[in-house]
Design a protein around this nucleic acid. Sequence first.
DNA 1: CTTGACATAGAACAAATGTGCGACTATAAT
DNA 2: ATTATAGTCGCACATTTGTTCTATGTCAAG
Lengths: 220, 220
Amino acid sequence: MKRKDTKLPERQAKIYAFLSDYINTNGFPPTVREIGEALNIPSTSLVSYYLKGLEERGLIDRESSISRGIRLVSDPYQSNDFLPGSGETLSIPFLGYIVASAPIPVEALAGTETVEINRALFGRDVNGLFALQVQGNSMIDALIHDGDTVILRHQDRVENGEMAAVWLNSNAETTLKKVYYEGARVRLQPANPTMEPIFVPANDVRIQGKVVMVIRQLSN
Amino acid sequence: MKRKDTKLPERQAKIYAFLSDYINTNGFPPTVREIGEALNIPSTSLVSYYLKGLEERGLIDRESSISRGIRLVSDPYQSNDFLPGSGETLSIPFLGYIVASAPIPVEALAGTETVEINRALFGRDVNGLFALQVQGNSMIDALIHDGDTVILRHQDRVENGEMAAVWLNSNAETTLKKVYYEGARVRLQPANPTMEPIFVPANDVRIQGKVVMVIRQLSN
DNA sequence: CTTGACATAGAACAAATGTGCGACTATAAT
DNA sequence: ATTATAGTCGCACATTTGTTCTATGTCAAG
């Protein structure tokens, strides 16, 4: 019943796309004139006219007379009613950022943000999970990039070949690597096969947690 | 010059909180005067003064001289003390599997499973998102593996270099590649730099959606 | 006491912006 | 041809809104 029967006019569609893009880029909506400039619409009143159209279709919301008072209405297309229902969601505490120069904080921060992900994406064991955002390039890899969110399970031992957050005592830094125990030493193998492994004494490493999921945001 | 040593002054903290709240509620930032009214700061210049402080601390970004040109910086430091957890969860419809041999289903399935992820991980624009699980090896890549869950935004055009789900008419298959428009043809570049791109006529491709997130489960 | 950051007012000003209105064009329907 | 309708322009106007400048108050350090 939501769906408008008539198809969205070319120009309205373009404006909507521009709005979405602009807001994403700038964090605030554009002015009528900016819209016009971007889409080669020479008259502010024309833009106004289209905006009114978009508003009538329920695609955007506007605050009259206030500058940049445009807001995208969540979801023009079907489905997304974003029901919070399902109850199958895990709240994983977000501990902050993982940087090479500091060990992972053991305690959750006071405010405790969380990352919500639904349980179906995990295996059975959902204990001891926590999330960190990767910052900086020191542990970058084909698999792990700057800005990625990694979800780890807190444990101090991992199986050979599993990826873990590792604290190196001597270097005083944290890194994300695949871990292989080789007698008295440990081989830390980047996930990227073209990168060289590093070897450290077994007593120099402290496993901080096993990486169970990597979430990469590609764009906004 | 990252971390500010001195603690955030009461008033700046309040303003920051107000900004966050206002933007959340209205979809666009407040004016200097609105901030003043909300926090009982009678002078616009005072608000300006504090805003400058927040900007110097890197907590906000401003576009000079443009109305409501304030944007919260996704802050690299902790600062959770005064950040209200946005804690909103998105339910993204899970459309099923993306396989090479079939186009992506346009409509959500009836029963419609969803993937719950909290909003904070996304940009502001959360419209038209849907999730798919990658199956099979045909679009495997350094970035995309079998079993990964990808989240896409439904759109039929992408910027150069963005990764998208692409339907190839002539091959009758779907693939995930970075898209580059090169005149009459399109270059589909695997994210893995060691893999060769493929070239197809522009009218042979149909963008199905832009990849905005990749979720990889590493272990059980 | 003096000095100098820091905090605070208030008002004036210049831009940035949304809106309204009249007029004009191109279709498509009557 | 006439009329209705959606699309289009320009432009004037009234607000909305960021910035700046002057003046004053506070308070700790010198």
